[in-house]
Design a protein around this nucleic acid. Structure first.
Lengths: 130, 130
DNA sequence: CCGGATCCAGGACGATACTG
DNA sequence: CAGTATCGTCCTGGATCCGG
């Protein structure tokens, strides 16, 4: 999109936009409104389409289809069609997707450590704006 | 990139993973088109508005303002106004923001480990679709 | 049962002229 | 210098109908 890529270790003290590209790639891949929900729902084993529609609450059929297609396209999910009547389709998380899920741990940790602080900051900001 | 409004509450069935909400919170806070770029640009010390406009390449003045406001609102940046003529405004990353930046490391690692795999999967998918 | 196709409202974003 | 105001465009995502 905007920036280039380099190594990870020296990010914090390196030039401004070096790590941005890689990070943005990940975020673009994951930041869909429903992506994480679907990945979580498929983390424990194959799941069927209608089952996902129930599990990922609030998702529309259209967005479920689109998000599943994108995840399949990136090799994070495998789509298996059983040529039965009625049709049966299962979605299974790949190893890559499971590793991603594990990598979200530190982010989750960050969020849990600071969610109260952030909420307070937000409230204070909103009140001071009024 | 994803368009996201402020409503990101429970989308995932919490019987499976209550971590989903937290992850989504983080993603919503970070997944803006310019958020990461701005955080990276402010990681080394106070930065002025126009300096950001140059550093974060491609950003419009409007989006710079909006993104900065949101980051300030969440307590990730501190906005300091010097009542001089001409005016001078500095944006400084908070400790919370710096910790977040560090937490992105495992995501970056994931992206670098699998970016080739994912690109290949995507190419294969696109060719099979054609 | 598993979607694809279409229509439409609303939000994200860009460009730029203007201001204290 | 550091924004704000305004307009216009593009895209996301929900609703709905349809087909295999």
């Amino acid at each position: 999109m905007v920036q280039r890529n380099t190594d990870v270790s020296a990010q914090v003290h390196d030039s401004h936009d070096s790590a941005a590209c890689t990070v943005l790639e990940v975020l673009d891949r994951v930041s869909g409104k429903w992506t994480i929900g679907i990945l979580l729902a498929t983390a424990h084993g194959p799941v069927r389409f209608t089952e996902l529609e129930r599990t990922v609450q609030g998702i529309s059929r259209r967005m479920l289809t689109l998000t599943l297609r994108n995840l399949e396209r990136d090799g994070l999910l495998v789509r298996t069609v059983y040529p039965t009547v009625p049709p049966k389709v299962e979605y299974t998380a790949t190893e890559v997707a499971l590793e991603l899920y594990a990598s979200l741990a530190s982010l989750t940790s960050w969020a849990e450590r600071h969610r109260a602080t952030i909420a307070a900051a937000r409230d204070a900001y909103d009140r001071s704006m009024e």
